[in-house]
Structures are given as structure tokens and as C-alpha cells.
Simulated assay, not measured.
Amino acid sequence: MSPTQRLLDAELVRRYVAASLGPDAGVTSCAPLTGGGFAAVWSVTLDDGRAVVLKVGPPPEVPLLRYERGLIGAEARYLRLVAARAPAVPVPPLVHHGSDAVLGDWLLTGLLPGRTLHQLTVDGAPVDAVRAGLGAALAALHRVDGDRFGYDGGRAAGTTWREAFTAMVDELLADAVDWAVPLPVPAGRLRHLVHRHADALDVVRRPALLHVDGWAGNVLAVDGPDGVPRLTGLVDGERHLYGDPLLDLVSPLLFRRAEDEPDDAFLRGYRTAGGPLPLDDPGVRRRLGLYRLHLYLLMTVEMPSRGITRENDPARVARLAELLDRELAALAEP
């Protein structure tokens, strides 16, 4: 269990439900959901038959990364925005967003059906239709414009994408200092390469709405009438921001490179739904390299806050170091 996850039990779940829906709302059953590493998440069946999800943020005394401040409120804003401006994107309906000094921040949402794309892949199920659906959903999401680049809520942002993205990287490097995270390369080298290629970011003039965390554990699917799984949900939008749509192509292809797999079902779905994808463009490839660098840096820096160490997960440490080195080497080429 991550240190950021609040410890819940059935009685506390009932308190959150009552605070959300009133004292007459009853709970017939509840159980924790696994797979996430930030918030505490429980499935809940209400006495009126509704199936909902309770998501509770960390206690206020728990230290977080800079971009993680106010993530529960950020997800509430995201769900309202998507429901209003991108209704084709299957996100959970927001039932209630609450915040108080005792219970902290929490969300109550509808429960979307399905198993995660990660589970389906492990089970050997056909997943191309799910991945194509994810591509189409992100293309729809990217048609929503923002009024800034970067995060909202006083976190890293800017009037240009260059300004916002470099601020995002700088905040992660500051977090690495705060948490004494040993980076596989000097922070100065990371900053140098980001600034060296920052001109490639200047072509991004429109702040598109991005999910950012579309890895397979946040994608839900159910079997269609033909037995082939299809997309039913895209969850955990608390990390959303506004920027370059290419940033959203990194997590769905975790540990892979879009430019090496242009015919992947996810990318085909994105293109078919109208998402521009000029993977042969050298500037696009530079931007994708910067965005993978950002993701691997984030995954490295967040480890202490999640209770992950070199001792209890050496494979993750080694893999991220290797991936960071590969992206750095590619960006360092003339």
C-alpha cells in the first residue's frame, strides 16, 4: 500500500457516502479496488441499487510531489469538463466532490463496467479493438481547448507550451532534490537537453486537453456481442493538463516508441478519428523523445512517495534508468 493512500474501512466508507448523499443514503456492500498507487479507491453498492466508486485523496499531512497538489479536485474538474465538452469520451459520471477538514478530499462517481486493458492483455484476450477505441477517445479529448498550457490549480503552467513543459520538468527535478531521489544521470544534463530541444515545443500553439495517464490499467473494456472486448471507460483523469496532444501518446505505449510502431492499433484508432500523427517529422520525434523523458523521470521521482525503493523493486529502478539513458542518448545526437 502506498503511503499516499488513506486507510479506509467499511464504516469510513459509510461516512463518506453520507457526507456525499445525505444521512439517509445506505451502503449494502463495499470493497477496495486495486491497481492504483495514489488515492484510496473502493467500489460501493448503495441501498438504492446504484454501483459507485469512492476515491479519497491522501491525508493533508502526507507529503506529495508538486504536481500532485489538489488532484482530487482536479479530477472533479476534468470529469465535469469532459461530460460537457467531449461526451463521446467514456468517463465515469461525477456524483459528488467533497472536501472538509476531517474527511479530506474525495469523489463519488459512477462505476463503469469492464476489466482493465492490462488484465485483458495478461489474460491473452484480443485487445486491438480496445486500443483503437482508446485512440479514438483521446482524439476526441484533444479537440477540447484550454485557456493555458500545463496544469491548473497553481501548478506548473505557462503562456506557451515551452514555458509550461520546462516548468513541469523543473518541478520534477526539484521534487527529486526534496525526496533525495538518486537520478541515473545528473539533473543538469536533463535540463540541458530539454532546453536544447525546447524550440521543437514552440510549434504547439493550441493548449489541447490531455488525459496524460492512459496506460492499460486506466482503460476499461467489456466483451461485445461478437466476444471481442471493446472500450467502455477511460478513468483516473486527475493528472490531466493542457498541451501538446503528442504527450498523450506516451502512456498508452508505455516503454515503447510510437515512431517505431506506426501501425499499432492505438495509433490507427487515433488517426482514423482525425488525430494528426506525422511520425516521420523530425520535430515530432524530438517532442516524443522529450515526453518519454518526462514520463520516465516522473516514474523515477515518484518512487519514494509510493514506498518504492531500490531494495524492494530493483527491476523498476534498473528499467527506468535504462529507458532514461536511451532517450537521453537519442536527444544528445546531433
Rank of each mutant, 00 (worst) to 15 (best):
G289A: 15
H195P: 01
D199H: 13
A200H: 13
R66L: 14
A31W: 14
L7T: 13
L277Y: 08
M1R: 09
P207F: 14
A132Q: 08
F165H: 09
D123S: 09
S2Y: 07
D263C: 00
M299I: 03
A137W: 10
H197K: 07
A167I: 04
A216Q: 13
E259A: 12
E75C: 03
L246D: 15
R206T: 15
D178R: 14
V185C: 08
P87F: 04
D281N: 02
S20I: 11
W179C: 01
V169N: 05
L117G: 01
A51C: 07
D147E: 15
L290D: 06
W42D: 05
D175W: 03
T300E: 14
V250W: 04
P3R: 04
C30Q: 07
R162C: 09
L190C: 12
G124C: 11
T109K: 00
G224M: 01
A18V: 09
A25V: 07
D263Y: 00
E322L: 11
F266M: 07
L323C: 10
A330E: 15
V17I: 15
D248M: 10
R285A: 13
D213K: 04
H192M: 14
M1Y: 05
P58A: 15
E327N: 12
L120E: 05
V82D: 07
F165K: 01
T121Q: 14
R196M: 08
L33F: 12
P304M: 08
L183R: 11
A164T: 08
H142Q: 12
D199R: 11
P87M: 03
F266N: 03
R306Y: 14
P304V: 07
D236M: 02
V144N: 09
A180H: 15
R257T: 13
P92W: 06
L247N: 01
G35K: 05
R326V: 08
A180I: 03
L117E: 13
W42I: 03
W161R: 12
M299P: 03
T159N: 05
A167H: 08
L12C: 00
D178T: 13
A174T: 13
R162I: 04
D24K: 06
Y67W: 06
D178L: 14
D199Y: 05
G289N: 13
M303I: 01
R230H: 14
P87T: 01
L120I: 04
L65V: 02
V122P: 00
T232N: 05
E61H: 05
V56W: 08
T34D: 13
P184I: 01
A40G: 06
H96N: 02
G274S: 02
L324V: 10
V169S: 02
L141T: 06
R50W: 13
P23G: 03
S99T: 11
T4S: 12
W42C: 05
S29Q: 11
L120H: 10
A258T: 08
V212C: 06
P63E: 15
A157K: 02
H142V: 09
A18K: 14
V89D: 04
A139Q: 05
